[in-house]
Design a protein around this nucleic acid. Structure first.
Length: 194
DNA sequence: GCAAAGATCGGCT
DNA sequence: GCCGATCTTTGCA
């Protein structure tokens, strides 16, 4: 089944945890590619100084203050995009960063886009999964439900989930808002724990 | 206006 | 484990 707004409107940390095991599907560029989400991070509103939204709405983060279930894509480090899903009520500006996928469909297209044949390197990082699925800034602000190029599915898989501090940030580092599929070899490297 | 940091990755030591 | 690539956004003058 395809997930709808009532799913994304829940508490952001809950959504981040529930997203582990769900399937992200892309048909961009005429290739069907998909992967199971194995790692996410929650980014909250003004109490979370690591979140783009903590100082309030701006030109870049405005999508975070829009409807839940929409996509927030941003450009970082001069060369990478990251993919987020807007969550919670619109006025607080919260979202979940997708950090890693286990590749399922369209391995050939992913290998071509990523320039590697190593399955464990195709989508094991936030910028990697964006590249593997052909996502770019044109997806910023689009809705997941009813989309023709990018959406999420639930195939009923039950997945054990671990949690811990987020990666690659310098503020609010103590918050345990990172979630990953316990024992999965497809999570991003810098987050070692099982 | 300018300077610095940033939710990263890949290559090299 | 460290470093450079590369450019947008933000903070401060």
């Amino acid at each position: 089944m395809v997930l709808g707004p009532e799913f994304y409107s829940q508490d952001t940390a809950i959504v981040a945890r529930l997203l582990i095991g769900k399937i992200l599907v892309s048909t961009k560029g005429g290739h069907r590619t998909s992967g199971r989400i194995v790692e996410t991070e929650a980014y909250l509103g003004m109490e979370d100084e690591a979140s783009h939204s903590w100082r309030g709405p701006s030109a870049r983060n405005s999508v975070m203050f829009g409807p839940a279930g929409h996509i927030y894509v941003y450009f970082i480090y001069g060369m990478h995009y990251c993919l987020n899903i807007v969550t919670g009520p619109p006025e607080v500006g919260e979202a979940v960063l997708l950090r890693a996928l286990e590749p399922l469909e369209g391995l050939g297209a992913m290998q071509q886009r990523r320039g590697t044949e190593l399955t464990s390197s195709l989508a094991s990082g936030p910028a990697k999964l964006v590249q593997a699925l052909g996502v770019d800034i044109s997806d910023n602000g689009t809705a997941l439900e009813g989309a023709e190029e990018l959406w999420l599915e639930d195939d009923g898989t039950e997945q054990a989930v671990s949690s811990g501090p987020r990666i690659g940030i310098s503020r609010s580092t103590h918050l345990p808002l990172r979630f990953w599929a316990t024992g999965s070899p497809f999570v991003s490297k810098r987050g070692t724990p099982g």
